[in-house]
Write a protein that binds this DNA or RNA. Structure first.
Lengths: 114, 114
DNA sequence: TTGATTACATATTATTGTTATGTATCTCGT
DNA sequence: ACGAGATACATAACAATAATATGTAATCAA
């Protein structure tokens, strides 16, 4: 059961930059990314796996990440993803876009920033 | 001609909180909101009118804003919108969601420093 | 009178998350 | 030995919604 604390569109807008940024810190795989997002957000963000896997496939299709299959010691299969150079450039662009929007919102919400 | 500097999903995620926040500062109307967003963002955000008007209709349909028609001195018709109390509560929730996601992203960007 | 600006509207299309479902393995408690 | 829960990935059906293009119509400056 997925408890959605964040609006759908906000999930859509943040999934790519967040996944790319997580992979910028090293290889990871779907199930782990799910947990990383939960932990990093202090439990405030809860992604569904049905949302994540298609996003990962899309990012791989677009050449922003690259996957490789691996087997764990206990026989489970995992697909590890790593960031490509194209993905790194996209992450930088996404960050700029995000900060433009965030700066504008914080301006409206009454904070000196950006 | 609309020059889109921000990814579509980011526009989708930020349009409601941004419009509600603008209207929290007083009445406004579509065309003016378009300009306010452009100015507030320092020209980094450029919304299309084809995107804005359906959003305004949806916000009104959902009772978050209320519109009233008016005529300017030179005979142009405008639809002024104001924030409802329901809209004000939604704005607060949107702000919390936004900050949860933003905090997580900044955490990632601070770590990998990039 | 031509173009730019102001001002709002909507149909078509494509994108994309949610929800539900399916596969398969391992671990732990009883 | 068995069942529950966690691990791990995948996809189909559905709904929501922005981008794009197009339309109406008035004002104003060159």
């Amino acid at each position: 059961m997925t408890l959605l604390r964040t609006p759908k569109q906000l999930v859509a807008a943040s999934s790519r930059p967040m996944i790319l940024s997580i992979l910028a810190g090293g290889e990871s795989y779907g199930y782990e990314i799910l947990k990383q997002v939960r932990v990093l957000s202090g439990g405030r963000i809860e992604w569904s796996d049905g949302m994540l896997y298609p996003v990962l496939h899309r990012l791989e299709r677009d050449g922003l990440i690259e996957g490789r299959w691996a087997l764990t010691d206990d026989g489970r299969r995992r697909k590890y993803y790593r960031l490509t150079s194209k993905g790194r450039r996209q992450m930088a662009r996404d960050r700029e876009s995000w900060r433009a929007v965030h700066g504008t919102l914080e301006l409206l919400w009454g904070k000196s920033h950006v």
